[in-house]
Simulated scan of single mutants.
Amino acid sequence: MKALKNIFVGFLVSFIGSIPLGYLNIIGFEVYSKTGMNNLLLYLLGVITIEAIVIYCTLLFADKLSRSKKLMKFIDLFSIIFMLILAYIFYSQSKSEESSESQLSEYLQYSGYLIGIIFSCLNFMQIPFWLGWNVYVVNAKYIRLGKKLNLVYLAGTLIGSFSGIFTVVMILNKVTEGTNLLSKYLLSHIIPLFFVGMAFYQAYKFYKKYY
């Protein structure tokens, strides 16, 4: 049961985080449209290879934080602020989306796996994203930690990222330019509201726990 909960929470967090139209999704669409399905799958494997390292390292750090009772209040407060920051980031991203086909074209000559590695390494936002989420799910006891349970959680997050980016790429491939409107709506409304809701929920738990 613990393993199933870990993999479900990992999948859910990662899938939702992958849905907004970020640059990794745009690059994945370019890889698919220019070089086909096989290269897209290699690209996604490259992306989650780096993500696996980031998630596992931040999870270990979150474990240490969760064991320190003196930091629990700070962690709870940080989780609330982090949710609001994520809501703002996703909202503001919808106002400044850019596509860079000319810069991407020079990379498309390489293996999709290498492209995924390169651009995932440049995705610095995943570090605070996963640190914040891992602190949150550990502190809120949504997942249980342990050597095997950590790997199960990691597997769930990687499946979620792979599935999320793949889903967005397939949608982009099937619809017209109207997709830009849809993606902006998701970024500026649904995803930010989700994070704001989580922030309010955490604020309620924070008040109930400490006051």
Rank of each mutant, 00 (worst) to 15 (best):
L108C: 05
V169D: 03
Y43H: 08
P128Q: 11
G132W: 14
Y153R: 11
M170A: 14
A140I: 02
L108H: 04
V138S: 11
L42P: 02
G160S: 09
K141D: 04
Y113R: 07
S120K: 09
Q126N: 13
N39K: 13
N150M: 07
M125A: 08
I50L: 12
L145V: 11
L86W: 01
L42I: 01
N39M: 07
S163A: 13
I85Y: 13
Y91R: 02
S99Y: 15
L145N: 01
S111T: 02
F78H: 06
L122C: 06
S105M: 15
L151A: 08
L86M: 11
S163F: 07
I75W: 03
I80T: 06
T167W: 02
L86P: 03
T157I: 08
C121H: 04
S92V: 05
L40Q: 01
Y110A: 11
S102A: 13
F90G: 01
A62V: 04
I80G: 05
S66M: 09
Q126F: 08
G156Q: 00
T167A: 05
Q93L: 13
I143E: 00
Y136A: 03
P128M: 09
N134F: 00
V54K: 07
S94G: 14
T58L: 13
G146R: 02
Y136N: 04
C57A: 14
S92G: 03
D63Q: 08
E98D: 14
S102D: 15
W130V: 10
Y142H: 13
S105P: 04
S66C: 11
Q109W: 07
D63N: 10
N150I: 06
N38D: 15
I75A: 09
V138D: 06
E101K: 15
S79W: 08
G160I: 05
G146H: 06
G112V: 04
S68G: 13
W133D: 05
F162P: 09
L84R: 02
Q93N: 12
L114M: 07
L42M: 06
K95L: 05
Y110H: 14
S66A: 13
F162K: 10
N39I: 01
S92Q: 07
L114R: 01
T167P: 00
L65N: 12
F74I: 15
R67Q: 15
F124Y: 14
G116I: 03
K73A: 07
I55V: 15
L131C: 04
Y91M: 05
